[in-house]
């Protein structure tokens, strides 16, 4: 069971985002592994324990992302392919999926591709599914339960939908995008952390993938960000004073007469 895990580095969810001149200020941002990609990696490692094979991390991102990738190796992944060529950067979900798809085609020899359901920076929730289409593979997205058949040729997944879950069966290879609840990502062990730096780590350029620099990254992006704005401020709220019974009466009146929501 050879798995490829697409892992992205994103700002820590605690980060306060500062906007200056219609752009996000990058200084001072702390970066971490996208939380959903930790579920993706954990799932790959779990099935590797059962079936053997290898777990490969694929990451498109700047040189800086090396630290996050090392965490993935420390958790137990076997090797890394890092698309760090600046030409890959600044793209959108489409160009990212396209570069990842080209890398996966070059790697070949895989049974399953795990992604996160969403990267918590741009919140596209699109790359995994686009990747599936570009590789002509089936996909199951937002998966919270996952089981590979004993023969390793098909899988059964549950995905969250409004008011319930869909049970989906798919042949492998397929793309699966991980939702929270799928598993509990392991912490890297000391041994894992020690070994991480000696595991195979390959960087690929646009030319290595046989892609045209005009079709990837910022140059190829189909989505253009015109401007980034801070969200509108919420009007200042008020705490309703008084004893609970009084305050509740006043709250109900305000909800009804002022806010008109009940």
């Amino acid at each position: 069971m050879n798995s490829i895990v697409c892992l992205k580095e994103v700002p820590d969810t605690e980060t306060r985002i500062e906007i200056r001149g219609g752009k996000i200020v990058e200084e001072g941002i702390q970066y971490v592994v996208n939380p959903y990609d930790e579920f993706a990696l954990e799932e790959a490692l779990k099935w590797q324990e059962k079936f053997g094979g290898k777990v490969t991390i694929l990451c498109l991102g700047p040189e800086r992302a090396r630290e996050s990738i090392l965490k993935g190796l420390a958790m137990g992944a076997d090797e890394v392919y890092h698309l760090a060529d600046p030409a890959f950067l600044g793209g959108d979900a489409y160009t990212t999926a396209r570069a990842l798809a080209a890398a996966i085609q070059k790697l070949g020899d895989y049974d399953i591709i795990f992604c996160g359901k969403q990267a918590v920076d741009e919140d596209n929730a699109a790359v995994g599914v686009m990747l599936a289409e570009m590789l002509d593979l089936p996909h199951v997205s937002v998966v919270s339960r996952f089981e590979i058949a004993a023969d390793g040729k098909s899988a059964r997944a549950e995905r969250d939908i409004e008011g319930g879950r869909e049970v989906v069966e798919t042949p492998l290879p397929a793309v699966v995008t991980a939702q929270k609840g799928l598993n509990e990502p392991r912490y890297p062990s000391f041994r894992g952390i020690r070994q991480a730096r000696s595991k195979p780590f390959t960087q690929w350029t646009v030319a290595d993938l046989g892609l045209d620099a005009g079709g990837v990254g910022a140059a190829g992006a189909k989505l253009q960000v015109m401007e980034v704005l801070p969200p509108p401020d919420r009007p200042p709220g008020r705490v309703i004073p008084g004893e609970p019974a009084e305050a509740v009466k006043e709250l109900v009146r305000l909800l009804r007469e002022e806010a008109k929501v009940i």
Binding site: T13, D123, L223
Partner: peptide, 11 residues
């Protein structure tokens, strides 16, 4: 984007 910490205008 960033879970609502910013808004992007896109084309």
């Amino acid at each position: 984007i960033f879970a609502g910490k910013a808004l992007a205008k896109v084309k």
